[in-house]
């Protein structure tokens, strides 16, 4: 500030303030506890970015708010003094300083953001080159599955075949493979459909359709996301990833779950009156449990009718959803509608 030299007697005080601000900022950056559990490989990347931003923001916040509060106390008008203050109209070096510092900070943050986005897989939005390569082959298998005889054929090879299920159109948007995995197809591919007011998960190799998302831990999962009616937004808060489900346009999210457990799936885009009730769950299994789940649901029904793995009433894990179960529930009619 212009008068810092007069009001701050020595560099010692400035140094002390700087140290205190630095300590508080670092502490708050590390310990703000604002973000939920980290369940994906992307989550620590995003959280580290937030930690850096929270640290810088805390420091700037303390300095600016401190200067405001200090000014209000120290430079408050007192008594009968009706004269004006010292007419300081500017300080060119200082103005350059506080233009340059934020400029450096935001350029740094910009570069860091691009790097994080790259690590998250943001630049791979074609679904991986392998997918495109096997396109014609997978169509063959897909047609097999449609026949009655397909069920016995799937067996152990279920997951591998699911990989072959290339999406009808290549997703252009969303989060794809991380740079390390860019040449590998995802290990599990699931088609996600958003509709008022539910998410449907279709396991293309297994002819299973579920209202909850089951995935194996530690496996590279790709979701091909689309919407039937209006825009929805597929959000996994614990995975720090989100992608709008757009009618008529395919998008994707690719992730590897790092823990087993059950976590919320949230619709984040206003999609109508019961938008708030459009929630589901992602259930992350150990790989062998996941296989068991697949087998169980494959065997559970005949091959003509796709499986509804979850009763719609079970979707609502709390009672508050009960009044809306009718509106949002999945029934056979809805399923029939959306099945290709």
């Amino acid at each position: 500030m212009a008068k810092e030299k007069e009001t701050v007697p020595g560099s010692l005080i400035a140094l002390t303030i700087g140290l205190v601000v630095a300590v508080i900022s670092f502490w708050y950056g590390q310990n703000n506890n604002l973000l939920p559990e980290q369940i994906s490989e992307q989550a620590p990347l995003v959280d580290d970015l937030f930690t850096v931003m929270a640290t810088i923001a805390t420091a700037l916040f303390l300095i600016v708010e401190g200067a405001i509060v200090y000014s209000l106390i120290r430079f408050r008008h007192r008594g009968e003094d009706e004269t004006d203050s010292e007419p300081v109209k500017g300080n060119f070096p200082l103005e350059i300083f506080w233009t340059a510092i934020p400029a450096f900070i935001v350029i740094g943050l910009g570069i860091y953001s691009v790097e994080v986005y790259n690590q998250m897989g943001g630049f791979d939005t074609s679904g991986g080159p392998q997918m495109a390569h096997h396109q014609h082959h997978s169509v063959e298998i897909a047609s097999l599955i449609d026949r009655d005889v397909s069920a016995p054929l799937i067996g152990q090879a279920g997951i591998e075949e699911a990989i072959e299920q290339a999406p009808k159109t290549r997703p252009d948007y969303g989060i794809g493979a991380s740079p390390q995995d860019v040449n590998n197809p995802a290990e599990v591919v699931i088609n996600v459909t958003g509709l008022q007011y539910a998410w449907l998960f279709n396991y293309p190799g297994d002819n299973i359709t579920s209202g909850e998302l089951h995935v194996p831990a530690g496996k590279d999962v790709q979701l091909n996301i689309e919407a039937k009616d209006v825009i929805h937004s597929f959000w996994l808060p614990q995975f720090r990833i989100k992608q709008d489900a757009l009618p008529g346009q395919m998008s994707q999210l690719r992730f590897t779950a790092t823990h087993t457990g059950t976590y919320p799936i949230v619709c984040a885009e206003l999609c109508g009156a019961y938008h708030g009730a459009m929630r589901s769950q992602i259930i992350i299994h150990e790989p062998n449990e996941y296989e068991a789940w697949l087998t169980e649901n494959r065997v559970a029904t005949g091959t003509d009718q796709p499986t509804v793995a979850v009763n719609p009433q079970d979707l609502s894990d709390s009672d508050y959803l009960e009044p809306y179960a009718k509106e949002m529930g999945i029934n056979a009619d809805v399923l029939a509608q959306i099945q290709p």
Partner: peptide, 18 residues
Amino acid sequence: GVKIFSWVATLWGGKIRL
């Protein structure tokens, strides 16, 4: 940011009427 800093600097050293 330039604006914010400039206003804080305007307060600094003033005779502020609350």
